[in-house]
Simulated scan of single mutants.
Amino acid sequence: MSVSRFGVSLDEELLKALDNYVSENGFSNRSQAIRHLIEKNMVEEKWKCDNIVAGAVVLVFEQSKTEILKRSSEISSAYKEYVLSSQGFYLNEINYMEIIAVKGPSRILTEISDKLISIKGIQHGKLVMSKAG
């Protein structure tokens, strides 16, 4: 694959943000980071086409908040045809991580993850999707 070079103009704030992104994610240079962001955007655009994808919803919360697991289970049950499995891990004395494996139309998986991530008490939530075949 041939590589094309081009110039990019960014204001100081965006340039600092790009440099932070390069540093935080271990990219060797700005070009690598920009390539990654463009490829990531291309994948996310494909999700909008409602393709069948597989993914995982990752939730982190305090393990003492047992109502979160109850609510997560209720949401997963409502979408049982798209939820493949779930697994939980004790990260430390305080935090718990639940990973919910999902497969289906990207629109539905996004809907499921939005409901899960918005559960009161979730410290961090993220949906990761990939092509299913």
Rank of each mutant, 00 (worst) to 15 (best):
L59N: 02
L10H: 02
K126C: 12
D50N: 15
R5N: 10
E13L: 05
Y82H: 12
L109H: 12
V83H: 00
E39I: 12
E24F: 05
M1D: 09
I119K: 08
S73R: 09
E24L: 09
S73E: 10
I38G: 04
D11V: 01
S23L: 06
K46Q: 13
A33F: 05
K40D: 11
A132P: 03
A56Q: 10
L10T: 02
I108V: 13
E39T: 08
F6Y: 09
M1C: 08
A33G: 02
E74D: 14
S130C: 15
H124M: 14
R107L: 15
E74N: 09
A101S: 14
S106R: 08
I100W: 06
G104R: 06
L91F: 00
S86Y: 10
S85C: 11
A54D: 06
H124A: 10
K103P: 07
S2D: 08
L18A: 00
D50G: 14
L109D: 10
G26C: 01
S76M: 01
V22S: 05
G26I: 03
I108M: 12
L59F: 01
W47I: 12
S31G: 02
V83W: 00
V53F: 07
D50A: 09
V43Y: 15
I122S: 09
K70T: 12
K48C: 09
N41F: 12
G26T: 05
I119C: 11
I38H: 05
K120A: 13
A33M: 00
L109G: 07
S86Q: 13
T110E: 15
S2V: 10
S77I: 07
V22W: 03
M97C: 07
S31Q: 05
S31L: 04
L37F: 07
E44H: 14
G7C: 09
N29K: 02
K103C: 02
I75G: 03
T66W: 06
Y79W: 10
G88Y: 08
I100L: 02
S113I: 13
S106L: 11
E93A: 04
I52E: 11
Q63S: 05
Q32Y: 03
V43F: 15
N25M: 01
L109C: 11
R30V: 04
I99Q: 05
G7P: 06
L37K: 08
P105Q: 15
I112A: 01
I38S: 02
L69D: 15
S76G: 07
S118D: 14
G88P: 03
I119L: 13
N95G: 02
V60L: 11
I117F: 13
L14V: 00
G133D: 13
L91A: 00
I117M: 14
E62I: 01
I52T: 09
